[in-house]
């Protein structure tokens, strides 16, 4: 007579084993993981785009009225110093416990980096190039769109990369209002002492950051073919 014994080994993510990495976990919970990753990407992309859309008028305003520049930079730097875990609650009275709260909060941080990037980028355009464009009869709008912005792109994209990578990381804090993408998995993992879930979510965060970073580098190379001939790596 045989004893009834456990026929299967406990899976590597059971509470008794609790391994840091567990392929079985990824396989079993792939639906949750994909949902969290999608939410993470959505929030990140929405926040960076919103930051970019807001950064343009602010940067142009600061350029048109130099006195405003220190105000714009001062206010955005001030907002930047507020920790994300404190900024989200301050938005809750206005936007509630929603993804919007997280997107707006993250856009504020991205905005600070992007306004500086835009201003530095526009400043890096050589004066003589602007002068010759004006001499060719370019109006201010055409000058901006056809000459200044394209030449400012390398510096702008550099700041866009910084903003994107840090937004991917900060999105996790959105778990405070239950919209943290992969941060929700990390939060759950800490509460349950669930190591496999924690490491999977953390690794995915870093992977998303790296993939978006590479995508922006590729985008910049496609948009600015003239920078390639210099043979210098763009940072």
């Amino acid at each position: 007579m045989t004893l009834v014994a456990a026929t299967t080994e406990p899976s590597c993510y059971s509470a008794f084993v609790n391994e840091w990495w567990c392929a079985q976990y990824v396989e079993d919970r792939h639906a949750d993981i994909i949902a969290a990753t999608t939410e993470h990407l959505r929030i990140t992309v929405a926040a960076v785009l919103l930051g970019l859309v807001l950064a343009f008028p602010l940067a142009l305003l600061a350029r048109r009225f130099p006195r405003l520049e220190s105000t714009v930079l001062g206010v955005s730097t001030g907002l930047y110093t507020i920790p994300s875990l404190a900024l989200f609650p301050l938005l809750v009275p206005f936007t509630g416990l929603s993804a919007t709260t997280v997107v707006i909060g993250l856009a504020v941080y991205a905005l600070t980096i992007l306004v500086r990037g835009l201003l530095d980028g526009l400043r890096s355009v050589p004066e003589e190039v602007v002068e010759s464009a004006v001499g060719l009869g370019y109006g201010s709008t055409r000058l901006l769109l056809k000459v200044q912005l394209p030449l400012a792109l390398p510096v702008l994209v550099a700041s866009l990369r910084v903003a994107t990578v840090s937004t991917v990381a900060l999105t996790t804090v959105g778990t405070l209002v239950s919209y943290g993408g992969l941060g929700d998995l990390i939060s759950h993992a800490v509460q349950r002492n669930f190591r496999a879930e924690l490491v999977t979510a953390a690794v995915l965060c870093v992977v998303i950051a790296l993939v978006l970073d590479v995508a922006l580098v590729v985008l910049q190379r496609l948009l600015t073919p003239w920078t390639r001939s210099t043979g210098r790596a763009t940072r």
């Binding site: 990578v165 991917v168 990381a169 990390i186 993992a189 490491v199 953390a202 965060c205 950051a209 940072r235």
Partner: peptide
């Protein structure tokens, strides 16, 4: 110097804290 700075940005603070606590 450059890589330390880039890695610092990509790793979520929350994730590192969670790993240390777990």
């Amino acid at each position: 110097a450059v890589n330390v700075s880039n890695m610092g940005r990509a790793i979520p603070t929350f994730a590192l804290l969670a790993v240390l606590v777990t």
